[in-house]
Amino acid sequence: MIELKNLEKTYSSNEGMLTVIDIPFYSVDEGSQIALVGPSGSGKTTLLNLISGLVNPTKGEVTVDGTRVDLLNEAEKDQFRSKTIGYVFQNFNLVNSLTAMENVMLPMMFRGKRSRKQQQERAEELLEKVHLSHRIRHKPSKLSKGEQQRVAIARALANEAKIILADEPTGNIDFTTGMKIFSLLRQLCIDEKITLVMVTHSDEYISQFSKVVDIRDINRAVALGKEAAQWES
């Protein structure tokens, strides 16, 4: 599902070129669920951004679901993200001016494959799956953090994504709620046969994964530490 070859990401800084990602080879199987772990600044978020096409690699290949993401132009990358990738963030990243349902409908609108009615039905279905049927007309500011994250999960599933990239999705939520959300996310990915790559620091969550990848094992640039952490943020 995901294949990285000679992947390199370098930033220029006052002190010269700074390499944050240097992965000779790594692949993720379709439908697998991976916990991506590692210290701050080890390149976890940058790796997710490279997979989604939000960041262009300096060198190397990124292949996702058979598509060479590194070769896509800007518009094609937008299409690719819209079709293939679902994102879940620590800070939810919902659009505050839109309701829960509208937030879920947003990626469908950008994809442009569903009619307004179909978008609505799909959003209602997904919000029901994350147990938010009663909150569909609420704006993010009226939802709890747990509810916001559930909306974000529903949104990530909206376009029947092949891969969900979750960047510390429970980082801002209390443990009990976080665990519920984590379980929900994993179950939905299993149900929909979605590949899940989840960045986390918490052992409680890590222990739930059958496959855990420490980025230091695949990224040769990790030794740069603190400076790389600045780029990560």
Binding site: Y87, V95, N96, F110, R111
Partner: peptide
């Protein structure tokens, strides 16, 4: 400032720059 974040979210969700 607020919009930039919304825009970033939209881009992440697959919105084109033109949109």
């Amino acid at each position: 400032t607020e919009r930039r974040k919304d825009v970033a979210i939209m881009r992440m969700l697959g919105s084109s720059k033109t949109k």
